[in-house]
Design a protein around this nucleic acid. Structure first.
Lengths: 133, 133
DNA sequence: CTTTAAACGATAAAAGTTATTGTTTAAACT
DNA sequence: AGTTTAAACAATAACTTTTATCGTTTAAAG
């Protein structure tokens, strides 16, 4: 019983080889688009169905095992759920990185100005990564 | 020659009745999804093609006449391009609002921490609007 | 072991987006 | 004002993406 098994169970997800592989792939690579994930999975499960990817992405989102990151100029990527953080997105090579930034000040400002009750903050910073500069 | 005519010309967009109506609709309503826009347009142009909406959204994005706002749990909405700002999104009624927030501090922090060259910041705050609370 | 509900692969159906084609029109130039 | 031309239009076909269906397999509880 490995690490990913427990993580899946904690989110009320039945443990299957396919799901373990998805968890591992996202853990290792950090962020993957749906079709990146599909192609990586095909290497391990040569006859995996694309529908299986869609259905697992969907239920894993529902059960907050993973999160979707919508990027300004690119396809969404998915990541294992972790502590709230912002994202850096390289507009040249497409790389996506996590970055810890304290958004509390902004969120408080926004609540005062707007009288919204804010529950989540999604910040994506687009730019050029170190490699591509 | 009205206001929207000049705005379209400034972005190298040929002025057509359909485009004027798109500009006006977005100006009046602030944010609209693609199919909201389509249905509003159908009232003025009973035989407008959905393809016309797609093509105009596309070219207007290319020419930065409009911007796409990708929302965490909903379909993208579009808005006329204006000064950089953040968005509030009500997760109950789907309303989207602009909000001016100074993100420079965060952007600077992110540049130092990451060595990315950051060009744009997209912040969407999800929550419950005043009406829905 | 059984049993059973859930997950799987295969594939059809539906929804969303883009491309094509013939016609119309905005805008530049007489 | 009338002509010309490239772009925009409506209609619709083609393509892509996502979801639903269905028979089979399997995880996990008893």
């Amino acid at each position: 019983m490995n690490n990913y098994t427990d993580m899946l169970r904690d989110h009320n997800l039945k443990v299957t080889p396919q799901r373990l592989a998805i968890a591992q792939a996202l853990d290792v690579r950090g962020h993957m688009s749906l079709d990146e994930l599909y192609h990586v999975m095909l290497e391990k499960f040569s006859s995996i169905s694309l529908a299986t990817i869609y259905k697992n992405i969907h239920i894993m989102l529902e059960n907050t095992f993973i999160q979707e990151v919508k990027l300004p100029q690119a396809k969404s990527v998915y990541e294992l759920t972790k502590a709230s953080h912002a994202h850096l997105s390289c507009e040249k090579c497409g790389a996506v990185e996590d970055i810890m930034l304290d958004m509390d000040v902004l969120v408080k400002q926004a609540m005062q100005k707007s009288s919204y009750k804010i529950q989540e903050a999604s910040l994506v910073l687009g730019g050029i990564c170190k490699n591509c500069q």
